[in-house]
């Protein structure tokens, strides 16, 4: 896996090591591992020749840049008025109940982070949430639980096939 320094350098180079692109650099870097560490910030400051305090101030300002570890899947639930009016609260509670964590936290197994987001512009089909990059609309508590189950099944299947592949590889060596 790409280390912190290499990832930071790669993305900074893509933007021509220009501190004007700091917001975009940090956001893209954030998407690599889901969050930024102090190492990322220090390396970015060094390469862009700006004080670490400036990098930290920008990183902490924007909600799509996280300074804490995130789960493998991130749910971003729209908590704005149009979604609230059409039953968002019930869906919100179903999500908390299903994952066993309050909003803003990550499950102990590191699978899920439950976050809120500002409007994602899909108000006509509210309540809405994003799971990673995908948007799900017209949610009900039931549909929200179904969607989570779908992701869980997919991870289980991926884990099983990885296990099988592992066995096959071992078998091959023997």
């Amino acid at each position: 896996m790409e280390d912190v320094i290499a990832a930071t350098n790669r993305i900074i180079d893509k933007y021509g090591a220009n501190s004007e692109s700091l917001v975009e650099i940090l956001r893209e870097l954030n998407d690599v591992g889901g969050y930024l560490t102090t190492e990322h910030l220090a390396q970015a400051a060094k390469r862009l020749r700006v004080p670490e305090s400036k990098v930290a101030s920008v990183a902490s300002f924007y909600s799509l840049i996280s300074l804490e570890p995130m789960g493998r899947h991130v749910i971003r639930f729209c908590q704005d008025a149009p979604c609230h009016v059409v039953g968002g609260r019930e869906v919100w509670e179903a999500l908390e109940h299903e994952l066993g964590i309050p909003f803003g936290e990550t499950t102990l197994d590191g699978e899920w982070s439950l976050m809120t987001t500002s409007c994602i512009g899909a108000c006509a089909v509210g309540p809405v949430m994003m799971v990673d990059e995908d948007i799900y609309g017209n949610l009900t508590p039931e549909r929200a639980r179904e969607i989570i189950a779908r992701y869980r099944t997919a991870s289980r299947q991926a884990a099983q096939s990885a296990e099988r592949a592992g066995f096959a590889a071992q078998g091959g060596q023997e």
């Binding site: 004007e20 917001v23 956001r27 920008v58 924007y62 799509l64 840049i65 987001t117 500002s118």
Partner: peptide, 21 residues
Amino acid sequence: MGAGAFVCGEETALMQSIEGK
């Protein structure tokens, strides 16, 4: 691209953000 901040829709804040601040 922005990075998730409602206030950036305000014109002077938006320009700060374009400048990487």
